[in-house]
Every structure is written in C-alpha cells, then in structure tokens.
C-alpha cells in the first residue's frame, strides 16, 4: 500500500473497494452462466441434461453471490460466504469430473475443465471472494 491511500476502515462495507470489483465480475458470471443455461435448456435440453442443469445451478450460485455482495451487512456476508463456498466446491468437483469422465459432460458448463473456457477465472474467483469475505469478518 502506498501512502496515498489511508488504511481501509474495519467497518467499511463489503461491497466497496475490491468488493465492488468482485461485484462486477460476479455480475458478469451471473449473467453469462444463467443466459447460457437458459439458451441450452430452452433449445436442446435433451442432449446433455446434467450439464445444462449444472449450468443453471452455477448461474444461480453466481446470482446469489452477486446479491450477497451487493446488499452487504451480516446477511449479505453470509449469503456471499455460502455462495462462494458452493462455487469453490462446484468448480473443483465439476472440473475434476469433466476431466475424469468426459462422457457425462458432452457440452461445456462454466465449471468444466476448471473453467478453462472462461480463462480459468471461475477457478480463481471463489478464492478471491472467500479471502475478501474472510478479511471482512466482523
């Protein structure tokens, strides 16, 4: 930290500072994952139902993380904490499964191959999110 920025106050809101950057990135993923799921489910659901339901689930997780960061406070923090944890488990589990057994995932989800289709951002994002929430503990 250079001298220009004063230390961040302990009680600063979850959704400011780096939190606002996270809000933008989570918002992007909320939109892209749920829009992708919507298109997949509405046009060719029967091709890979498991993958498409996972896309939809991922979309919901990103939406709730975005909402948690946006509303802040004790409740928002809890929502964001739960969402980021599910997201971390999800990206690790789906990433591993999609590499071990490509048959179940004929079509991609955000979390396939640890999010390689999205520049591995889905893999890094929950770590940053959880770190930010942890740093922001009351």
């Amino acid at each position: 930290m250079s001298p220009e920025t004063p230390a961040r106050p302990k009680d600063a809101a979850l959704g400011t500072g780096l939190g606002r950057v996270l809000l933008l990135v989570y918002g992007i993923f909320a939109l892209s994952a749920s829009a992708r799921a919507l298109v997949q489910i509405s046009t060719h659901f029967s091709e890979a139902p498991l993958a498409y339901l996972l896309s939809a689930f991922a979309g919901l997780v990103y939406i709730s993380a975005t909402v948690g960061l946006a509303i802040g406070g004790a409740r928002g923090r809890l929502i964001a904490l739960v969402s980021c944890s599910i997201e971390l488990i999800g990206v690790l589990a789906v990433g591993t499964l999609s590499i071990a057994d490509a048959g179940d995932f004929p079509d991609d989800t955000v979390w396939s191959n640890f999010g390689s289709g999205y520049g591995y951002v889905p893999l890094v994002l929950p770590f940053i999110g959880l770190w930010w929430i942890w740093r922001h503990r009351p």
């Binding site: 920025t5 400011t16 500072g17 606002r20 809000l23």
Partner: peptide, 16 residues
C-alpha cells in the same frame, strides 16, 4: 461502478 469507487479499485473496475 467506477464513479462510486474513487480509489484504485475504480481503476481496476474500468480495466476489467
């Protein structure tokens, strides 16, 4: 969002 965040993180928002 960058208008709301007049810190380095505002610059990062624009960069992202």
């Amino acid at each position: 969002l960058a208008r709301l965040e007049p810190t380095r993180w505002g610059s990062l928002i624009l960069g992202v």
